[in-house]
Design a protein around this nucleic acid. Structure first.
Lengths: 220, 220
DNA sequence: CTATAATGTGACCTCCAGGTCATATGACCT
DNA sequence: AGGTCATATGACCTGGAGGTCACATTATAG
């Protein structure tokens, strides 16, 4: 985590630095990011950088924290459209709200998902706990759905979690990769065409999950 | 592509070199692979390396070719268990046979999938044509399924392709990541527990695809 | 106004990357 | 035997990485 010297900095200066770091990680990932470029682009000296942070991974951890906080704040400001929503409806709402957030912070999101789903898969363990946390959230959700009778109780919870994670990742990768090609990513992601596509992906997942287990066990 | 000098080499020497390259790419990916290490681990000199290949990407392209050829040879030696199989059954068979191949060449597979699904996503374009080829194959498959009446004709073909690709990637990532932790990856992947898990994932996908569209359009 | 503590700086360090090249080796021909 | 040509070698080059440190600058306190 950043040292005190960094936290003492005037907000504006901090912003310049983390923006430069975001640009760097978004373009090069963690492994290939260059502290030299970060300092050059943020107009601080090499010495200062090491007075603020341990190393580039330290910066990245800070970004991770920033993202987590901002995302939580964003979700707190929103409310699901309806109160008596089933679990899948809630999951759809979460994914879509998440996409809205992502497209409003495209570079930050890109930087973090690059590292987490790219390098993190192989240089594992470092980010294992972050992934673990979201897994637990999804697990609670699917258990809720089973308790509500929305999902067959014989469903393999671990499997369902994996499926939800897979789709959540696939959708956010799709939105980021395609969206970055557009001139206005927000407008693009809100277009009916894209929204319908996301809906369809989620419905395919949902129907598969709802109906598979009973059919599957029958077929053996 | 490798130069003639490399192809002139005795098979055994070539094998030592490409094995060292596979190890390197599997552990470090393309971007962070080191020609120095490859050279050291294969016992050849720096000068020779550049007499054999243009650069490390050249080696990687060769590996890609080797993989493609070996996979094709492998599939030619196998036959679907039944002739009157529907499209999804065929897809399941393909995925499973592919997994068998992957686990019998775990390092080669790891090396290539790391680069293709990790770095390839961001340093795009270089491998776009390889991905494009598999997409076209899946597209033909899903169109066949529609023609056979197995899938609702109103289905969004592009979407179905994306879903199949997502699952194919997710499963192979899962098998590689988990499998590499086991002492005998082949035995592990063939165990009923793992086979059932793969089956379930594919069934969730299949039921989603089979049944979603009509339900989906109704729900609007 | 001066003394002291905090912050800022960039030249410099080591390390290793990708890549080159003059030179050495040795297989094969006449 | 000498000559030729493909192959093999590792010292060497440049460039950029992460990281350090003696010194310069600025804020704070007495």
């Amino acid at each position: 985590m950043p040292k005190q010297t960094f936290l003492n900095l005037p907000e504006e200066k901090r912003k310049v630095i983390i923006d430069a770091a975001i640009d760097e990680f978004a373009e090069y990932g963690l492994e290939n990011a260059s502290t030299n470029r970060i300092v050059a682009n943020s107009g601080i000296s090499k010495g200062s950088f090491y007075q603020y942070f341990e190393d580039k991974q330290d910066v990245f951890m800070y970004l991770l924290m920033v993202l987590e906080q901002e995302k939580m704040a964003y979700f707190k400001g929103k409310h699901p459209p309806s109160n008596n929503m089933d679990t899948f409806g809630y999951f759809r709402w979460m994914i879509k709200t998440g996409m809205e957030f992502n497209t409003s912070h495209p570079l930050l999101t890109q930087a973090i998902s690059r590292v987490m789903f790219g390098e993190g898969l192989y240089y594992g363990n470092t980010f294992a706990d972050v992934r673990e946390r979201t897994s637990r959230g999804l697990k609670a959700m699917i258990e809720q759905a089973i308790a509500n009778g929305e999902v067959d109780p014989s469903v393999d919870v671990e499997l369902a979690v994996m499926i939800m994670e897979t789709w959540s990742n696939a959708i956010s990768t799709y939105v980021l990769n395609e969206g970055m090609k557009q001139k206005d990513i927000m407008k693009w992601v809100r277009s009916p065409r894209v929204q319908e596509r996301i809906d369809k992906m989620l419905y395919v997942m949902e129907y598969g999950l709802r109906k598979t287990e009973s059919e599957f066990t029958k077929s053996f």
